[in-house]
Design a protein around this nucleic acid. Structure first.
Length: 235
DNA sequence: ATATCGATTATCT
DNA sequence: GATAATCGATATG
């Protein structure tokens, strides 16, 4: 098996909220630095958290794939507001997705959070994802089940209990919120950059960022595959 | 492993 | 009325 994910770090490291200034710039600049940060949800006394291992940058009114493309509307107005806030949208009649607004107020641009490596609150995530199926207490879910918790934008929103009515417009740069982004000091060793997925316009721009070799991304990058069928290994 | 498809509803044309 | 920054299930090689 591969290396164990860096999970031990979380109990020893402090979770410092990421500043608003961090997001006050082009999402393409934010993207690489945001990978490895931690999304935190306070649920009563419990903290649900996961490391950001995959994300996509969406630009402003010049990006045909961005919700900001048609200008400000009631739905997307958070994108044009101050940086560091949650833009939540509802999609396919089923799922919510989380963005972080970037750029100075008045200009659109955001980061779509696409996958987390679960760190704390896994039992609550299991429950909110509906993967508990009447069973009793899970001790530690299998690696395969862990991947189903937060490996995808709709999945992570469901696991963290993120909805539009509850969270849209929330300030993600302070732990006075019950949803925020923190830095625990972790630095990814290597990143991958690929085209964005799930879109039909501007499909070629390389604006999807992933932590290389991380097993909790929604889909492994297409490129740099090596042939052996058995123990599929990337590099 | 990749491809295709249905579910389900807020938002916009 | 059409579409959608998805997911889970099924079909196929």
């Amino acid at each position: 098996m591969g290396n164990p994910p860096a999970r031990k770090s979380l109990k020893s490291r402090r979770l410092r909220p990421v500043s608003r200034r961090f997001f006050n710039r082009d999402p393409r600049e934010v993207a690489g630095e945001l990978l490895g940060k931690v999304l935190v949800r306070r649920d009563g006394q419990e903290l649900l958290s996961g490391r950001i291992v995959e994300l996509e940058a969406y630009l402003g009114e010049d990006d045909p794939a961005a919700h900001a493309f048609a200008g400000s509307t009631e739905r997307n107005r958070v994108l044009f507001g101050p940086p560091g806030h949650a833009y939540i949208y509802f999609i396919y009649g089923n799922y919510y997705c989380l963005n972080v607004s970037c750029m100075p107020e008045g200009q659109a641009g955001s980061i779509l959070i696409r996958a987390l490596e679960p760190l704390t609150g896994l039992d609550a995530m299991l429950r909110q994802r509906g993967l508990l199926a009447g069973k009793t207490k899970p001790i530690m879910p299998s690696r395969k089940i862990q991947r189903l918790l937060t490996s995808g934008p709709g999945r992570l929103a469901e696991a963290m209990g993120i909805t539009r009515t509850r969270d849209n417009g929330k300030d993600l740069t302070t732990d006075a919120s019950d949803l925020w982004i923190a830095d625990d000091g972790f630095k990814p060793k290597q990143l991958d950059v690929t085209p964005r997925i799930g879109i039909s316009k501007a499909t070629e721009m390389p604006l999807r960022y992933l932590i290389a070799e991380n097993e909790f991304v929604s889909r492994q990058p297409r490129t740099k595959r090596v042939s052996p069928q058995k123990s599929a290994r990337r590099s």
